[in-house]
């Protein structure tokens, strides 16, 4: 999908036409895997500086999710400090980078640093590498693989106790959490030690005994992609702080939605 045109002025005009007071902006591909690994730290730094400049130049209209070179946790932790110094509002994390998913212990240093800083986090799907998805059926990767990616990352975070070990790491899931609201119940069902042990016919120990269904309610969900017409976060997570409309609006990355997944009413072609 070609990157749509974007300018601060265009975004403000769109907001004004849609009763949106402010947008918190992020790059559309937060894994930065569009560029080589050695270039990502510099790209993240440049993106964050430009983002801070946009936020500064239009007070009250923009916030910013900083981006991190997540593939290199040491560099990512360093960039996180700069994101704070730049006064950005939080960070955007990809569901995976180079096949390593959130929840994987290799990314724990990044999660730990975000947790310590108590920074807001938006988790955004990133397409799985072509060699990690079937060729058939041939469908645009954003159609199904994006919602699936969020499920993979959330399942791994639940099973790896990422959210219980980091009490201030409370991601907002983009695109309404993809398929998390409907598959979350299955994930938590099979997450019972008794269930897993019976299935595998051997003793399975999880890092900590958890009520995974309750952990799911700690997540927050945005409304991008018009999930509101179907079973949404409210059903999955009654009582979740994700049901806060103000937060939804702030998390809504509608500026990204210039492509096909901007159905009327969300992106640039509003339905009236």
């Amino acid at each position: 999908m070609p990157a749509p045109a974007w300018t601060p002025e265009g975004a403000i005009a769109w907001m004004d036409a849609h009763d949106v007071s402010a947008q918190v902006l992020s790059v559309p591909e937060p894994s930065l895997t569009l560029v080589a690994r050695r270039e990502r730290a510099a790209l993240a730094r440049a993106c964050n500086e430009q983002l801070a400049e946009v936020v500064r130049s239009h007070p009250g209209r923009f916030g910013g999710w900083g981006v991190l070179p997540v593939h290199d946790p040491v560099a990512a932790v360093r960039e996180l400090a700069r994101v704070r110094d730049l006064g950005l509002d939080g960070v955007v994390l990809p569901t995976s980078v180079d096949g390593v998913y959130l929840g994987d212990p290799r990314l724990d240093p990044v999660v730990r640093a975000i947790d310590r800083a108590a920074m807001p986090v938006l988790v955004h799907a990133t397409p799985p590498p072509a060699h990690d998805r079937p060729e058939s059926p041939a469908l645009p990767e954003v159609l199904l693989e994006f919602p699936f990616e969020i499920v993979r990352a959330v399942a791994l975070m639940l099973y790896a106790s990422t959210l219980t070990r980091h009490r201030r790491f409370r991601p907002i899931l983009a695109d309404g959490g993809g398929a998390v609201p409907v598959l979350g119940a299955r994930i938590s069902l099979f997450g019972l030690e008794a269930g897993l042990s019976a299935f595998f016919q051997r003793r399975v120990s999880l890092p900590a005994p958890l009520d995974l269904a309750r952990v799911l309610t700690w997540l927050r969900f945005d409304t991008a992609g018009r999930v509101e017409a179907r079973s949404g976060p409210r059903d999955a997570c009654a009582g979740s702080r994700g049901a806060d409309p103000a937060r939804h609006r702030l998390a809504d990355d509608s500026g990204r939605l210039g492509g096909w997944d901007a159905p009327a009413g969300v992106g640039g072609q509003p339905r009236r």
């Binding site: 159609l143 919602p147 179907r230 079973s231």
Partner: peptide
């Protein structure tokens, strides 16, 4: 997930 993604 097909019913939940039907709008998509």
């Amino acid at each position: 997930a097909a019913p939940a993604l039907s709008e998509r």
